[in-house]
């Protein structure tokens, strides 16, 4: 048994050393990101020779030249990315909440069966549907359009969001629906006027993650978009490696990469709580 005094002292020590370790770990984790952001302000010849995190000169020219470094400029890429992401978010929210409402609240024949099917699609790796979906969209003449990236969202293919919403809807007290039914509300009005307004947390979580995943998505745009004027931001960044060949455009690449992370970073700052809670629910992947 130790004296209370010494144990308090050792507890203080423990706390200090814990903080030192955590701070070092956090710094190590964020170092690559900070280094990239700092490098985007440095002239090319100083990026690797000067590993300091604060540039000695703040040089914005990488941003200006990076923006126009490819045949098409980044204004177009950002417009494309934001358009696709916005439509994907709308599609996911509408289609997934309709489906989730049916599973959570409505009674119909084979509901359990369909629900099991829906959960089954959660486990299906995307590889299995990749080739036939491509063939389908090719035959519909949708390759080189945004339709393959958007239409599936309006058909609730992201079962994960359905699952999340079903869980949430089930938590809303049934008395509320019953009172609404007594007042003569049909399912549509209950869904639109009661469920959706009560579900803003789960809708926001789904919106945030479908924005981030669509904005970052690389494989689907890679397969379906061939014309540079249609490229999304990730495709444009990838074109950077191809066009710069020997990778001499480090500064420009860093500038555009840093900029491309900004939307997701801002979403994180604004909705940190929702994102962390979403992950902690034990179901989100990233």
């Amino acid at each position: 048994m130790t004296m209370p005094g010494t144990s308090r002292k050792s507890a203080a020590w423990q706390s200090v050393s814990r903080h030192v370790i955590l701070l070092l770990a956090a710094f190590g984790m964020l170092y690559p990101l900070i280094w990239m952001a700092a490098s985007s302000f440095k002239p090319d010849n100083m990026i690797f020779t000067q590993p300091s995190l604060i540039p000695s000169v703040w040089d914005f020219s990488n941003y200006a030249s990076g923006w126009h470094a490819l045949r098409v400029d980044f204004t177009t890429f950002y417009k494309n990315s934001f358009l696709i992401s916005a439509l994907a978010v709308i599609g996911n929210l509408m289609a997934c909440s309709l489906t989730a409402y049916a599973f959570a609240r409505l009674n119909f024949r084979f509901r359990r069966f369909w629900f099991a099917m829906m959960m089954g699609t959660l486990m299906l790796p995307y590889h299995v549907t990749l080739v036939p979906q491509y063939i389908l969209f090719l035959n519909l003449g949708w390759v080189n359009t945004y339709l393959p990236l958007i239409v599936p969202r309006f058909l609730a293919v992201d079962a994960f969001f359905i699952f999340l919403m079903v869980q949430f809807f089930r938590g809303i007290p049934r008395e509320i629906d019953e009172a609404a039914i007594m007042d003569g509300c049909g399912p549509w009005r209950i869904y639109w006027r009661i469920m959706l307004p009560l579900s803003t947390p789960v809708l926001a979580t789904a919106a945030i993650f479908s924005f981030i995943w669509t904005y970052d998505d690389f494989l689907a745009p890679l397969i379906y978009l061939n014309d540079m004027r249609q490229y999304t931001v990730p495709l444009a960044l990838r074109a950077f490696i191809d066009s710069s060949g020997g990778e001499s455009l480090y500064g420009e690449m860093f500038a555009m990469s840093t900029l491309s992370l900004l939307p997701v970073f801002l979403v994180f700052l604004a909705f940190q709580r929702l994102i962390i809670r979403g992950v902690a629910l034990g179901a989100l992947k990233r």
Binding site: M94, A95, L98, T99, Y101, A102, L106, N107, F108, R109, R111, W114, M117, M118, T121, L124, V128, T129, V131, P132, Q133, I135, L136, P152, F154, L155, A156, V157, I162, G186, P187, W188, Y191
Partner: peptide, 28 residues
């Protein structure tokens, strides 16, 4: 009243399930 509303709400998902998931899985 029992089934109709449910299936109406389920329509987008059913189209997606057959057209974009189950169909392509079997095609694959």
């Amino acid at each position: 009243r029992r089934n109709g509303a449910g299936y109406l709400f389920l329509t987008p998902w059913l189209i997606g399930f057959f057209g974009l998931t189950l169909g392509p899985t079997l095609a694959s």
